[in-house]
Write a protein that binds this DNA or RNA. Structure first.
Lengths: 351, 351
DNA sequence: TGTTAGCACTCACTTGGGCAGAGTGCTAAT
DNA sequence: ATTAGCACTCTGCCCAAGTGAGTGCTAACA
């Protein structure tokens, strides 16, 4: 008996979670009895709650306190919510236009846009947000070498998505302007449109062959290109609202706080968080990690909601919202969906 | 009487500050009586302390507690210490070589060096550190325009100190390769070696004049150059050890913590902190702000020690160490001096 | 058989009193 | 001028009692 999760138990569980999300305090049977439309006495609720506890959906902080959701309970709640919200995008119209205004206000650089997005979400939700800059489809669009003076050469590589990388090379032996011109033509004709992975040994030897006596230099330039165009190495990460985390008592004690803030300072851990979430992503692109599920150990007492965005031309990244386990998942998901919509819009008109 | 700060009072004050720095707790007369070599009874000390309090050097958190230094007291202590340490650079030899090793280990980019410096200092001192990237002597070294495709042009500006800036321009009307070549020659011959401030209206009109029908384009490129070479706008800031601040009880309460952490997240306030300290700097280039003296209001319960570094070629910036008011000023100053020495060394061999 | 009322019990949290310890300020003696 | 001594004042800690929210169980009920 009570082994299977029937309709009524589900309803009670949802009520418990919901209430706990709001108050942050253990919720008792009497509250639920009044809170729901089930018209059951607190005693009955107590029995059901006892069952729910046996099944592992809720937990008692100590005897004779109310119950709080376990990770498993949260999971069920979130999954359920996601199913319900499947197609529905019910953000208030006002908020949408607010966002739109805010986002398109000062969009000179993509970076600024992303930073703004992070800030906007942090303000709206009162959680911490992190946005990864686009990871680019590492296709080379244009290469430019130029002599700065006798012994220094500038090497610029433009990648698809208009990401520009550059580096200055110290030359061992002098070369003249004409040679540089030739090298430019050589590189551009052979490498344009290629991804870094496509440049194999064959390509390399073909190019060095054609370069003749400049083979040495060419090899060095190729190395630089590889370094510069090389994968996610340079992924940028924008954060906002880290201090929001201090607003939640269960996280604001010293131990938790410094662990969490540290993650935001180092950023490197956020990177692993975002990239690994990218792999897990499914249908909607929205992913919810609860407590221990998060890829970053230091966040085990938080929940993370991530969403990947893709604004065409190979430009894509991930947005993450980090809050306490009792975060308002519904609101967060809605916010993310709206932002995604806005980003899409901004970039359809703007590319 | 006792209006003037005699030898003995000074000695007692120093003892109080010193002791408070170590323990973080109000220090009483008996402690000082035993602590110093003055051979005075606690009663005498009490009298002196009472005088010191009247003079505003120390403060009582509540009746019948020990005394703690006021901002004024810290100030005196620090000034005194700085005078004593004037020429002496007494960092243990071991630490120096440790630092050297650490700093030169992976110095591919200046940025990495600075980030490492920040981390090193944070670890050594257990305070938070912030390092501003060099502000460059905004002298233009080299300009390169290149066509990426029909309607996009890449504009690269290399500044002294090998800082590279770039931007992609959308062209309104097509231009051909030859024109670009001409423009390159034009820009480089007229602008090289100039600072952004030196480019006045005369220069602009001369160039646009020479450009003939490309005047419109030239003007836009000039704007970009201005934007790109424009002053400190792009100052980069590296931080480390922000979470160290949570280790000090007087700062780790929620209100303080979020104010402080926020400063580290926004970074913009740190920028004002560092630049304004640069202006105040004097002899040694080391500057100590105590409590309310700091330029950033949110830091009014902290102390900040800053030092400007200058590694030649117009490359200079500021390092700041931020901690509680009862930070170990001596240690901090020594650390900063050592780092400065190391940076100097690293760059004499490395430019 | 599922639901409910009632009751005893548990446990965290609050309140207030009492006590110890650290430290001061003052006075009187040296 | 210095010191010993004493009364006084706070803070912090502990403990005991009381309060309130909530539970589990049992017995009655529809």
């Amino acid at each position: 008996m009570g082994q299977e999760l029937d309709e009524r138990k589900l309803k009670i569980l949802k009520a418990i979670v919901h209430n706990y999300l709001e108050t942050g305090e253990p919720v008792g049977s009497r509250t639920i009895s009044k809170y729901t439309d089930l018209n059951l006495s607190s005693a009955t609720i107590r029995n059901e709650m006892s069952d729910l506890e046996d099944m592992g959906y809720i937990v008692q902080p100590h005897t004779s306190a109310g119950r709080i959701p376990s990770d498993k309970g949260y999971r069920l709640y979130v999954d359920n919510m996601m199913k319900e919200k499947e197609e529905e995008l019910s953000v208030k119209q006002q908020e949408i236009t607010d966002m739109k205004e805010f986002l398109t206000e000062k969009v000179e650089q993509v970076e600024e846009l992303l930073q703004n997005t992070a800030k906007l979400l942090a303000n709206n939700t009162n959680y911490a947000t992190v946005v990864s800059s686009p990871r680019f489809s590492k296709r080379i669009k244009f290469i430019q070498l130029s002599l700065i003076n006798e012994d220094k050469m500038l090497c610029v590589v433009v990648m698809e998505g208009n990401v520009i990388k550059n580096k200055i090379v110290n030359l061992s032996k002098n070369i003249d302007g004409e040679t540089v011109l030739k090298l430019n033509i050589l590189f551009n004709s052979t490498l344009n449109g290629m991804t870094i992975e496509e440049i194999n040994l064959g390509t390399v030897s073909r190019i060095t062959g054609q370069a003749g006596e400049q083979g040495e230099l060419v090899r060095r330039v190729l190395e630089i290109i590889a370094e510069v165009a090389g994968s996610g190495e340079d992924m940028k990460i924008f954060t906002s609202g880290a201090t929001n985390m201090l607003k939640y008592p269960e996280l604001s004690d010293n131990a938790h706080a410094s662990e969490i803030i540290n993650v935001f300072e180092e950023k490197q851990q956020l990177e692993t968080l975002l990239t690994s979430s990218e792999e897990d992503g499914e249908g909607t692109g929205i992913q919810v990690y609860i407590g221990n599920e998060t890829p970053v150990q230091n966040m085990k007492d938080c929940s993370v909601v991530t969403m990947t965005y893709d604004i065409g031309d190979g430009v894509q990244g991930t947005i993450g919202i980090i809050g306490p386990k009792r975060m308002d998942y519904e609101k967060v998901v809605e916010n993310l969906k709206t932002v995604k919509k806005q980003l899409d819009d901004a970039f359809q008109n703007n590319t």
